[in-house]
Design a protein around this nucleic acid. Sequence first.
DNA 1: CACCAGTTCTGCGAAATCCGCAAGTCTTGG
DNA 2: CCAAGACTTGCGGATTTCGCAGAACTGGTG
Lengths: 172, 172
Amino acid sequence: MHSEVVASRSADQRDSSRESRNGTPTLDAVSLAIIQQLQEDGRRPYAAIGKAVGLSEAAVRQRVQKLLDQGVMQIVAVTDPLTVGFRRQAMVGINVEGDVESIADVLTGMSEVEYVVMTAGSFDILAEIVCEDDDHLLDVINKRIRALPGVRSTESFVYLKLKKQTYMWGTR
Amino acid sequence: MHSEVVASRSADQRDSSRESRNGTPTLDAVSLAIIQQLQEDGRRPYAAIGKAVGLSEAAVRQRVQKLLDQGVMQIVAVTDPLTVGFRRQAMVGINVEGDVESIADVLTGMSEVEYVVMTAGSFDILAEIVCEDDDHLLDVINKRIRALPGVRSTESFVYLKLKKQTYMWGTR
DNA sequence: CACCAGTTCTGCGAAATCCGCAAGTCTTGG
DNA sequence: CCAAGACTTGCGGATTTCGCAGAACTGGTG
């Protein structure tokens, strides 16, 4: 069923993760294959994964543990926020004067902020907000975000309908 | 450690999911608590979850299975795309003339498109693109998206730095 | 080339978990 | 009152997880 990853034990196969210049670990083909397996089913048994990627159960277990410890991946339940009672979501584009990153850090600290990314283009920051209702959303955008010193302007895009949400990188 | 969900067996506790008018299942407090547990650790044993939410192991197992079958949640590994070899990402704001939803559907079908949402505001659609390099990104945006009939204009926000990415709805 | 240190992989038992099933309770709705 | 649905308890057997010791490989060093 799952195409076997041929384990030609040469070169870069070994050392599953090595610190590269920028600090983020580099992943080898086997770890990638493991992640791929877990993207299909986060609860798939280690033995089954091992069979698919050509490793022993224990080895898979070690690698998964390391990937989790390193923060390279996390195994979690994901849901459609609407189903879980969060009825209002929005993407907020933000323009900043001064230090962009410090503003981004503050946003990161807000529990309603699900997603923060610094961008090139007509916004400096994009932030996704997840709220329970309109009042809550309004409060976060107007009272908390726009009030931040350094925030020059914001533009909101209220979500009408979520069409796609995948977690299948590498599975193509 | 985890605050126990007191199972006062009245009213809405029973029938874990019921079809509501719009087709999406309504979740009760217990299912929410289960999801919350699995958002902290997607591999947490059913028995441990049961202890935390006040249900038997078997009951948790049944509920989780149903939640998965219904598509309310999925248990998966999530990663930082950068670490997995996708070096270029962008959010694309799109303006459409004619049927917005049909355009959104087409985008949904593209494997590079990770996220599609219809919005209110100066964009009709926001789509997140995940690519391996600049060429790939350019190709998707200019050749595939802008070429779609009905797409009036697009604006791209290339990601410089991902600051936050959570999956902890309900865990606040 | 030999040796060492560090890391990864394998191969086990032992413990824990998962899974299916059956019988009994409770509640809701017709 | 009966039927349906959900939960519990209890139970084995199959499977999975877990910890650990030993083997294998890599890279660096004298």
